[in-house]
Design a protein around this nucleic acid. Structure first.
Length: 813
DNA sequence: GGGGGAAGGATTC
DNA sequence: TCACGGAATCCTTCCCCC
């Protein structure tokens, strides 16, 4: 960390990115000096320094690798690059007309439009902490988007700061989008101010349009001065050479007074679009026209502001354009990649192609392919609007926060916000990620993938708080000093998954009835139903094995530190607003939090169970005892929310968990949830997973471990009857046969097979052979009983429960 | 070795 | 005003398990 060298390094690292339009011809050196001076010594600066050094190390490593490349390797790579280039060339598609439209300094332009006094003043839009964007006057001073306001003020003391007003921007954006839709109904908005359009079809149809369909009139209230091309274009004489365009721009035709007639080609169509945008919103837009998205994007920046540029749909034109294009102009190449490529002597796309062989040896296949495509001017020709969302998150920056209590409170708040957002889109995800940035700007993310999807505040917080707690514990006894916290949910159930789950659930009942007389489980043939379940099965198996492993780890390691348990408890038990429908009594339960609702369902279940149980299982030691624990409750809510009928969309994800075979397992082993609370048992709270919440240790002759995870609650072990010393015997809760293995994966597979082939089949058979309401045995063992004390549970209840859930689901669907 | 999860990073607006 | 965002996606690397 030597002073001057670092400074020099950072000078280029933190320097102004003059990639942005409006930054041309500014005094870079002076501006960069001010930026550096203002930043120096701050935590942010120190962190940037660190990041730059990391990149330098990556470059050093890369150069070492480069030095070790042999002539032979290089020749071979050259051959591969040639081959790949030929393949890519064969796939080149020049048939589409892709347009990228970008509103000029959008937020600032809206503010200037609405407040004309600002028009000639340097303007920044944002907060007193950070600017979102700036107008072109401000850009001349080096003020740019995402710049801290205090630095912007140093660069331009007269800078006027206007707060963000998203309602206004959204409204204007909606107006612009209405116009986009007329050129491409499937246009792809990238943000409020930019979009991709495929106008191939529009241009084709346009060829046969009469002039009247291509004629627009200047806005009556808009003087010629109000339109840029009148006042600012050098040759503006009311001709339609409106904007500074590409040399290939074809001249437009002027119509009668105030009328503007546009031509039929792509450029004319785009000109017309921009004209209409300006007439409608009084804002200007820039556009790029090219055969693919990558080029269109680069083109839209070429004549910014208020201009357009087109690359003809010819290979040579594309290659000519790309030849001298600086790599930094290419979307996806940021300052790190630029620096790394620069170290290899690559600054333009032509050089990118020339050094293809070297890049193939130094970068990953994905990166190299990407570079090669860029160097050939290739990009996506299909504008995909249907891309499914992959994640959703929320984060907040704040002044230093080191109080554990505050951190947990904020975490819950974020989970609540995120839950609201998720529920608005009907999304449920399996992975919860917590993002933490400490006061030194170091970012950490901690993720947890759950066995079932989550979407409610409680569910997300259950996982997030564990992740946060782990970090707090890790720092202990030092406090965790945060400046940002975020929560993300990802791993959403895809549309296909939802459909296949829905199918398999319905087919489960249907095939159960149809095949009731068959003995497919013995036939050795895999039925379609089984095949359909196999994917879910493997998913649950994996989750199960992982869970059991975690559980085993839990038993070995002591519980978590007790930091802020009261806080957690309070937060966990905070009231909720939703209402739920009980899947047992079918009554809507309002004004209940999850805990109470859960209790209600438990009571419903218990009352049904107890009635038959007491008759059938009088010797079951677990009867009547029901452990209600914070973690148990917390876990069970995953199941309970699954029957919330207020969110039909979520129901898809719900059934993933509640109707998967593991849940059926849970239903059969429900009495197992009534874990023993015999004297001498101690409870230990799990720390690793929100799905593993309680481990019960009994001091008696039999040690039993029982996850409160009802979905997997059917596995238990009994000592000392295990296959070997120290190895608990694993007894299948379905067939009641002790398995000659201590391998949980093998055991789990056995249980799943038993479950799918035995229990489900049996339920199916029983459904047709028994009148509902008349108890019959399903051959399910009461969890927690000794081998000889197999007790049978009225399976009809299980079926009714499942049936109700399916009905509820169907009604909502 | 492949797949998947976790963690971190790069990039964009 | 003494200070550098939020959201999303994709990629890479590492690790573990099958």
């Amino acid at each position: 960390m030597e002073g001057e060298d670092e400074g020099d390094g950072l000078f280029s690292w933190m320097a102004l990115n003059d990639n942005k339009a409006g930054m041309e011809g500014i005094n870079r050196e002076k501006i960069n000096k001010i930026i550096l001076e203002a930043s120096k010594g701050s935590k942010f600066y120190e962190n940037e320094l660190k990041k730059e050094q990391q990149v330098n190390q990556r470059i050093e490593k890369m150069m070492l690798q480069k030095a070790q490349i042999t002539e032979q390797q290089f020749r071979k790579a050259e051959g591969q690059v040639e081959k790949l280039t030929a393949d890519l060339e064969r796939g080149r598609d020049l048939g589409r007309v892709v347009v990228h439209v970008d509103m000029d300094a959008f937020y600032a332009a809206v503010e200037m439009r609405d407040c004309p006094e600002l028009k000639d003043k340097p303007l920044g839009v944002g907060s007193w902490r950070l600017l979102s964007t700036s107008n072109y006057h401000a850009r001349k001073f080096g003020v740019r988007a995402a710049m801290p306001t205090f630095i912007a003020k140093k660069l331009c003391p007269n800078l006027i700061i206007v707060p963000l007003n998203f309602d206004k921007y959204r409204a204007t954006s909606a107006e612009v989008r209405e116009i986009f839709a007329e050129y491409d109904p499937n246009f792809l908005p990238m943000s409020l101010d930019e979009a991709y359009l495929d106008i191939t079809d529009h241009v084709m149809h346009r060829q046969s349009w009469p002039e009247s369909m291509r004629t627009y009139y200047l806005h009556s209230g808009c003087s010629a001065d109000g339109i840029r091309f009148h006042s600012e274009q050098p040759d503006a004489d009311l001709s339609l050479d409106l904007f500074e365009d590409s040399p290939s721009a074809s001249p437009s035709v002027s119509g009668p007074a105030g009328a503007v007639v546009f031509g039929t080609c792509a450029e004319e169509a785009v000109r017309e679009m921009r004209f209409r945008i300006e007439q409608k919103t009084m804002l200007t837009a820039s556009a790029g026209i090219a055969p693919n998205m990558m080029l269109a994007k680069v083109c839209s920046d070429k004549n910014k502001p208020n201009g357009q540029y087109r690359i003809p749909a010819e290979r040579q034109a594309v290659m000519d354009f790309v030849k001298n294009l600086p790599i930094r102009k290419v979307p996806g190449i940021g300052k790190v990649t630029e620096k790394m490529l620069s170290a290899l002597g690559i600054k333009t796309c032509a050089e990118l192609h020339q050094k293809g062989a070297l890049l193939s040896l130094l970068f990953s296949e994905t990166s190299f392919h990407h570079f090669l495509q860029i160097s050939l001017g290739l990009g996506s020709t299909h504008i995909n609007r249907d891309g499914e969302r992959k994640s959703m998150s929320t984060e907040r920056t704040f002044a230093e926060m080191s109080s554990v209590e505050e951190q947990f409170r904020l975490c819950r708040e974020l989970c609540g916000d995120l839950a609201n957002d998720l529920q608005k889109e009907g999304l449920k995800g399996r992975t919860v990620t917590v993002k933490l940035k400490n006061v030194n700007f170091e970012v950490k993310t901690r993720a947890l993938t759950l066995s079932s999807v989550v979407s409610t505040e409680e569910e997300i917080f259950a996982a997030a708080k564990d992740l946060l707690k782990a970090e707090i514990d890790h720092m202990s006894p030092q406090p965790l000093k945060l400046r940002l916290m975020g929560v993300r949910v990802s791993g959403f159930v895809s549309g296909d998954e939802k459909k296949s789950l829905q199918k398999s659930i319905i087919s489960f009942f249907q095939s159960g009835r149809l095949e009731s007389g068959e003995t497919s489980q013995h036939s050795g043939e895999v039925s379609k139903q089984e095949a359909g379940q196999s994917e879910q099965q493997s998913f649950f198996q994996k989750a199960h094995v992982r869970r059991l492993r975690l559980q085993a780890e839990q038993q070995e390691s002591p519980g978590p530190s007790d930091q802020a348990p009261a806080v957690e408890h309070a937060l966990l038990n905070a009231p909720r607003k939703e209402y739920f429908t009980c899947p047992v009594c079918f009554q809507k339960q309002e004004g209940m939090d999850l805990g109470k609702f859960n209790q209600h369902v438990d009571e419903c279940l218990t009352s049904v169970y107890t009635a038959s149980w007491e008759q059938d299982v009088s010797s079951c030691p677990a009867q009547g005892d029901y452990i209600r624990t914070e973690e148990g409750l917390h876990h069970r809510q995953l199941q309970v929310t699954n029957v919330d009928v207020t969110e039909p969309k979520i129901g898809n994800g719900i059934l993933h968990t509640s109707m998967g075979h593991s849940s059926i397992f849970a239903a059969h082993t429900m009495p197992g949830l009534m874990s023993q609370t015999s004297e001498g048992c101690e409870e230990k709270t799990s720390r690793n997973s929100s799905d593993l919440h309680k481990v019960h240790y009994c001091d008696g002759g039999h040690q039993r471990t029982s996850s409160s995870d009802s979905k997997f609650g059917g596995v238990y072990s009994v000592e000392p009857e295990g296959p070997g010393p120290g190895c608990p015997a694993l007894i299948c809760p379905i067939c009641n046969v002790q398995q000659d293995t201590s391998d949980l994966a093998i055991f789990n597979r056995h249980v799943d097979i038993c479950l799918n082939q035995g229990v489900l089949q049996e339920i199916g058979q029983e459904v047709v052979s028994h009148t509902p309401g008349i108890p019959f045995s399903a051959g399910v063992k009461c969890q927690g009983l000794s081998r000889g004390a197999v007790k049978r549970i009225p399976s009809v209840f299980i079926f009714i429960l499942l049936f109700i859930i399916v009905i509820v689901y169907q009604l909502n669907a």
